[in-house]
Design a protein around this nucleic acid. Structure first.
Lengths: 211, 211
DNA sequence: CGTTCGCTTGAATGTGTTCAAAAGAGGTGG
DNA sequence: CCACCTCTTTTGAACACATTCAAGCGAACG
């Protein structure tokens, strides 16, 4: 159920009701794969933090194309907007737990939020560089390094997202992503274990590709 | 002196010394065209606000390519980083006045700064979309609309930057930018007045191109 | 065992890049 | 004021890279 551009879920189907005390201030909602966390046009009166699983933040264009602006994993804050309405969509990737915090309860200028935005901003800039000035194989290499870093710099890890997601994140097609992965394998930089399993053999080599 | 990737200026050559009172807290420095405001690796202990002129924020890649991440104009804040050192470069475009504010004097979480970062973040995301999922002519159209908006939605305006800057902002080559402008002219969307003068004839048409 | 879905591979096409040259614009000096 | 120079921009033709369309493969599931 990953090809959920057209078949999108409603909001908060499985939302865990807020409990008394601490949980009321920061309730955790659970989402299934492809389920919408918030969508473009809704009021942006909450910020979110990933507890487990992963989240994709994206926007759809008129021609039907999709650009994923960011992936968020455990501990990441997301959902902060400059205006009062969301201009993007957020969906769960796999079973995902998200802590929601109302902005009225939370001082907007809390240091943690501030650095969260700066972190998001920095990541967006980094990604601008990748999709702006890197070739297909370099983008895929950069992506793998980013995912490795996000999973604690592990040499072997499982991608939590499908090829479609990777392609829409890197502004490529799934075919080009697939071809680039094959090239990286043939050049001895990576080893593929099934569709999602990645092993970085030539870490240095990958880094050299990206800059 | 716009081709100043290799021939870069030193910092603060024309920096106006801080004056007593209010100016000491927020001194305004003046920069000439192409002059460096801050560069990658320097300590990021200040935030900046454009008083007049324009600023380009960019990064150079190993292969010599440049990606301009943002242009900043009068009133815009820039220079905020998540880490303590700049990961980007900032240069003046034309004669430019910049107000510098030390971060130690300024509470980092001031609402104005917070919304400035959100604004920057939002612009970066918007730009990700443009360079990720738009064709050359759509990017140029989006750029012209952005510049028009930045100059108070005027139908007729002068670009403050060269074609090289436009190209490096849109992740294209100068040739492609030039060709796209010509196409837009032939399609009756714009009128060109010299190299920098732009007149938007078909505002609606341009908007339809972008989404 | 057959179907479905996601991924990979192949061939043709198209869009943007690269290299090269010409045309404009702006500035200086005679 | 015009000629000349330089730098930017435009235009042209060949090329490269990613996309598109199409088919084949493999794993998961009923």
């Amino acid at each position: 159920m990953n090809t959920s551009i057209s078949a999108s879920w409603g909001r908060h189907i499985n939302a865990i009701p807020p409990q008394s005390g601490e949980a009321a201030l920061a309730p955790t909602s659970s989402f299934v794969d492809g389920q919408c966390i918030y969508s473009c046009g809704e009021r942006a009166d909450q910020v979110y933090r990933v507890e487990f699983g992963a989240v994709r933040v994206y926007r759809l264009l008129a021609n039907g194309r999709r650009q994923i602006l960011a992936f968020h994993f455990g501990g990441d804050w997301f959902g902060l907007q400059s205006r009062d309405r969301h201009s993007l969509n957020a969906e769960a990737i796999g079973v995902t737990g998200v802590r929601c915090i109302g902005l009225q309860e939370e001082p907007l200028c809390r240091p943690a939020l501030f650095s969260a935005v700066l972190e998001n901003f920095s990541a967006a800039q980094e990604h601008q560089l990748v999709i702006g000035r890197q070739s297909a194989i370099e983008r895929v290499a950069a992506f793998l390094l980013e995912m490795s870093e996000r999973s604690g710099y592990s040499r072997r890890f499982e991608l939590s997202m499908s090829r479609v997601d990777v392609a829409d994140y890197l502004a490529l097609t799934i075919e080009t992503v697939s071809r680039s992965l094959t090239k990286l394998k043939h050049r001895g930089f990576i080893e593929l274990h099934g569709a999602r399993g990645i092993e970085l053999v030539g870490y240095r080599g990958l880094q050299n590709l990206c800059l």
